[in-house]
Write a protein that binds this DNA or RNA. Structure first.
Lengths: 228, 228
DNA sequence: GGGTGGTGTGACTGGCCGGTCATATTGTAC
DNA sequence: GTACAATATGACCGGCCAGTCACACCACCC
């Protein structure tokens, strides 16, 4: 955790430090990130750095907490068309948020990617329930609920599917952004939301159709496609 | 490329160097791998290292070529039940190979994972055809063939699906191995093939059912499940 | 004025790094 | 044996690193 001294700093100075740290962590994994590079980029003395943070891991953790907040912001910025999303609308929303985050904060997304690859535990077993849970458990809960609501096929191995969704969520955002191509800057600048762009939504439709057909108990996907 | 001197070395010595290099590259990404660590682990002098390799990237490239060969070995070790695999049997085989490789050569798999994450281009556009191709193009070709054979739905966005399969192939192996659990050592030691283990095959069935239902033109998946 | 506590500073230390090179050793051909 | 090439060696160099610390600065209070 950053020191009290750091929290007392004028916001402008804190932002300079954080911008420099984000640039460094986006370009190098924590393992090979350099304190010297950060302090010189931020324009502060090395001694000051160690008055603000215990070490570089401390700063890294602080940046991760910023990423977490920004993610919530992005999720909340997406329009919510209904209070109770059905199962696959919820999944779409989660993936949409990942893409929107990638566009609006590519550097933060890059830091997250470095972190994911360094944490090599693919899943863990809950010591209380003895249940196996992949990652943070979001998709696990999503799938369990989906089965309860008769939206997801009961034969689906929940934990494996959760893991699959997790790696898709983590990996597909940069690809989709590349596909979106020249629209990305407009979305990044806030002039456009990926929600309102038909090209982007076509890609999402296709991805969701594949996932929904794969997971749904009674897939209705594209059945009209061949009858055209 | 390693020097002539290196190729002239007695095999035993070369193996010592390669073992040390593999251990180092499996534990650290190329960026933060250490020549000193490798030479001390291999028991050779630093000067010798630079008689064998131009630098650490040179050695890394050499190890990658070894990985490539071992992968082919693993693929060829899988039983081939038919000369012409149908579309989804082929996909199953590819994923099976990834898992078998992860079990038999976890260190090599880890090196590959580091490499994948460092090469950050998610896809590229072929300058001749103008066609977009994900990764090495294997899955792209697979899906195109699948559509021609009426096995895969024509509405599937081939390139996006190829990218999705690629990240699944790259990410799911460690997870499946963890699920297989205590069977892995027996498979690693060659006493058992993952093909012959029912637990492993159940997991594969489930994964393949999800993928097949998601991609197939006329999914027959588990339709008997609910009629039981 | 003087005292005190919070903050800023950058030269310095010790360590690890990649890479070099003069020298030593070994192998081979005669 | 001699001569010559191939190979092995580790001390050494300059560079970058994380982390420290003695000192300087500044604001506030008495």
């Amino acid at each position: 955790m950053p020191t009290k001294t750091y929290h007392n700093l004028p916001e402008e100075k804190r932002l300079k430090v954080e911008r420099a740290a984000i640039a460094e962590f986006a370009a190098n994994p924590l393992q090979s990130a350099s304190v010297n590079a950060i302090v010189s980029e931020a324009g502060i003395a090395k001694g000051s750095f160690y008055q603000y943070f215990e070490n570089i891991d401390d700063l890294h953790g602080h940046i991760l907490s910023i990423i977490y907040k920004k993610k919530i912001e992005v999720i909340n910025s997406l329009p919510l068309d209904s209070a109770n999303l059905d199962t696959f609308r919820y999944l779409r929303r989660v993936l949409q948020a990942a893409v929107e985050f990638q566009i609006r904060h590519p550097d933060l997304a890059s830091i997250e990617r470095f972190r994911r690859m360094n944490s090599n535990h693919s899943s863990s077993v809950d010591p209380e329930t003895g249940e196996r849970v992949s990652g943070d458990g979001r998709f696990h809960a999503f799938l369990t609920q989906g089965i309860l609501h008769d939206d997801i096929a009961t034969w689906v191995d929940v934990d494996m599917a959760a893991f699959m969704l997790e790696i898709i969520e983590g990996g597909i955002a940069p690809y989709l952004v590349e596909r979106i191509g020249d629209k990305a800057p407009a979305i990044a600048s806030g002039k456009l939301s990926s929600i309102d762009d038909p090209t982007t939504q076509d890609l999402f439709d296709n991805l969701m159709d594949i996932l929904e057909a794969g997971l749904a108990r009674d897939p209705q996907i594209r059945k009209d496609y061949y009858s055209k």
